[in-house]
Nucleic acid binder design. Sequence first.
RNA 1: GGUUGUGUAGCUCAAUUGGAUAGAGCAUCUGACUACGAAUCAGAAGGUUUAAGGUUCGACUCCUUACACGACCA
Length: 598
Amino acid sequence: MQQLESSLKTALQTAAQAVFGLEIPAASLTLQPTRKEFAGSFTLVTFPLTKAFGKGPEQIGQALGEWLKAHEPRVSGYNVVKGFLNLEIADAEWLAVFNQLRAQPATAPVGTAGGPQNVVVEYSSPNTNKPLHLGHLRNNFLGYSVAEILKATGATVTKANLVNDRGIHICKSMIAYQHFGHGETPEQAGMKGDHLAGKYYVLFEKHYREEIRQLEAEGVATDIAKKSAPLMTEAQLMLQAWEAGDPEVKALWSQMNGWVYEGFDETYKNIGVDFDQYYYESETYLLGKERVEEGLEKGVFFKKENGSVWVDLQAEGLDEKLLLRADGTSVYITQDLGTAELKYQDFGYDSSIYVIADEQNYHMQVLQATLKKLGKPYADAIHHLSYGMVDLPSGKMKSREGTVVDADELVRDVVAAAKAATLEKGKTEGLSDDELEELYHMLGLGALKYYLLKVDPKKRMLFNPEESVSLEGHTGPFIQYSHARIAAIRRKAAELGIDESADWSQIASLEGTERELMQELARYDSVVAEAARNLSPAVIAQYAYDLAKAYNRFYAEVSIFQETDVAKRSLRVALSARVGEQLKQSLKLLGMQVPERM
RNA sequence: GGUUGUGUAGCUCAAUUGGAUAGAGCAUCUGACUACGAAUCAGAAGGUUUAAGGUUCGACUCCUUACACGACCA
């Protein structure tokens, strides 16, 4: 289609030359798909040409349309509405486009076209003190999908996970475990390791709050109470001991983190995301401190009297930013400096994407500006894929207030809903019990992924539990259903011995829904390119829906197996097959799978 | 207080990046399975795109101001 579109532009340029004797740059020709209510497939907006031609928009449309109809065989007709020239494309051309499309597998790369070639996508990046929740799911699905989309352009992509495994919050879980754990293991507790750590994090907060209340009752001011509560003091001491390499603290740390990693791995596997490379802040924060030293030597950072290190970013429109505390311990940005360096050493990327919620916008600006100050060559390669937080109908999620939606539980719920629906109306004869379980999982997770990915990443979104398990309308299972339907068509076609590759060049005219489908199919490459440019899986999600919708319309209006014309019947089977493949491929870019029956 | 994001149908989201009469899904109402899968399709109803100005052939989109909600920085 890109070929058809660009050759139409060339034809329009030729027409302009022939009719008006003027050269027009291709860039000034805005060609777009024609709106449904008008006849035609492509529309040229003629308003922008009025100045150059010194003619009215309708006159221009008429003249160009007339010329194309007479000289361009691919244009079979035209109509002009105000400043819009609608071009009708000959059916023979549509068939040629479709043939060309079929020559390439649906999985063929679409080309990077000026985009990055070598990309690192960092996503997920959990803390090891609690299990994953709904917000992480949006992050994970986005990160995985963006990586797949960039791969589909032909770029080399590395998926990285930066684990936040050190810091005061980790110590909180550890302190609580020492106090209240009695040596409990995940096996004994019958819990996943990440949930066990989360349990102790919550316990810490609970007892800590109690201590503050008591101190306040004794007349201590709130801010002092918060700092001097025994549990908090213990946690801080533990952090220092950790940085000093205390073997006992390190042993507990390793043990608890190990449990958490087992839990995470299970969740990642369950939600179908993976990583090529793991980074641990415990291993990068020292490298970050080296970067701070480097900045001091270069004179782009400065030290305050108390010994803390800062960078002045006021010239960049930001503030002064702390890089290293007075006691020499690191802050978030310290380790981020180290991780960026390490990633560059490992992969030499030309684009480094950070999938992080928009509450970190300022932080990411600081990181980039600081790396620039250091003169790092990769500073400009940094892109923050900033996404909005997920809200609940009851308001914002807050882990301390227990209003989080747990990821594992949520997945269980959506799979259960998919199972219920399938038992009620599925056509699953012949599937084994294992295959059925796989199907429920595929559908439930598909519903959830699609629900979270169809919204523009940068927008804050509302999570409605009922809609997220819905399987009808604008949902993942709607698209999966279309695929299963097509699979049934293909099974039947094979049974009947219908040849998908029969010669259909004799077909005189196409149905409207057939043309529409071909145009939709041909859009795929430019859709992927746009999704890659905008780092937006939502673009793919919308496309997959449109394609499935167009197919269902075609399916309802046109009969495949009742068709007596052999060529037409064959074409319709081939069209169905191609739609199925492109639906499968599109959903794959969202991290979703498609069933053969459901 | 400063910086920044968002505001579209009752609800959740789109709108080809400045183009035609602003489109989908859910919810409501109507029609279509003794024809290839009804998790579907066709139709009805639902809008002063937060407000007021401005830019131009043309604005949900760009500019200014105000309002609402959110995030971040002190």
